[in-house]
Simulated scan of single mutants.
Amino acid sequence: MIQFAALSEPTPGILKTLNRWENDTALQALTRPVQSEVELTEPRQLTMNDLTDRLKHENIYLIYMDDQLIGEMSYMIDPGHLYKKEPGTAWIGIVIGETKGRGNGIGYDAMKYLEEQIKKNGIKRIELGVFAFNRRAHRIYQKLGYQEIGRIEDFTSWQGEMWPDIRMEKYLGTQQRIYLHSTK
């Protein structure tokens, strides 16, 4: 069973899990830009204060599968790194930290949940960035109706090559494209 819960009070257990994901080199390559893979081997340690400070400008939701924390998602309003500086825009992020939570539709369901939370707060536009090599995530965002609005070239290094960050947007409450899938 999948559950989503707003994070309001960090705990040592949550912090420990987030730090494990933060230092998982396979996840790091998907979640933060690097100029060299050497950066991925440098350990990072979030503190309780870091997480508490993050909650001051981000809405964070935890993703649970059978009562185990498997991921987190968040949004912030009008951060400086938006590609399209449109006031009232939510910038979103999602991490499925546990392997068992990947490839089975949880990311899709989590994104739908996050969109609903954003919509409830009166936000009409969402923007995100996805590294070009992360084709699985890019397809999910397209399936959810996100449209590419630009690319930032040479944004991150992966497997010895520089890759762009694809910026995408979605307006909530507007007609979405319907994607038909055929099986042959």
Rank of each mutant, 00 (worst) to 15 (best):
Q142D: 13
Y108N: 11
M76S: 09
E86M: 10
E127M: 03
P10F: 11
E58L: 13
N59G: 10
P164D: 07
N23D: 12
N19Q: 09
M48L: 14
L180W: 04
S182D: 08
S157M: 09
Y179F: 09
G105W: 08
D78Y: 03
R167A: 06
A6Q: 14
F4S: 02
L55Y: 03
N59M: 12
T156D: 02
Y146D: 00
A6D: 07
K170G: 01
G71H: 01
E39T: 07
I94C: 01
G71T: 01
Y75P: 01
T25E: 15
I152C: 06
V38R: 15
T174L: 10
L46Q: 07
K143D: 09
K112D: 04
I70R: 00
A29R: 03
D165F: 05
T156S: 13
G13W: 11
G97T: 06
G107V: 01
Q35L: 13
G103N: 08
Q68A: 13
D78I: 07
Q35D: 11
Q45L: 15
M76T: 14
G97M: 05
M65I: 13
N19T: 04
T11R: 15
Y83S: 06
G88E: 11
E37T: 07
L27K: 02
T31P: 04
R32S: 09
E86S: 09
E37Y: 12
L180F: 04
T17F: 11
I2D: 03
T11K: 15
R44P: 05
I2H: 05
A132F: 12
N19P: 14
Y83A: 09
W163Q: 02
Q175P: 04
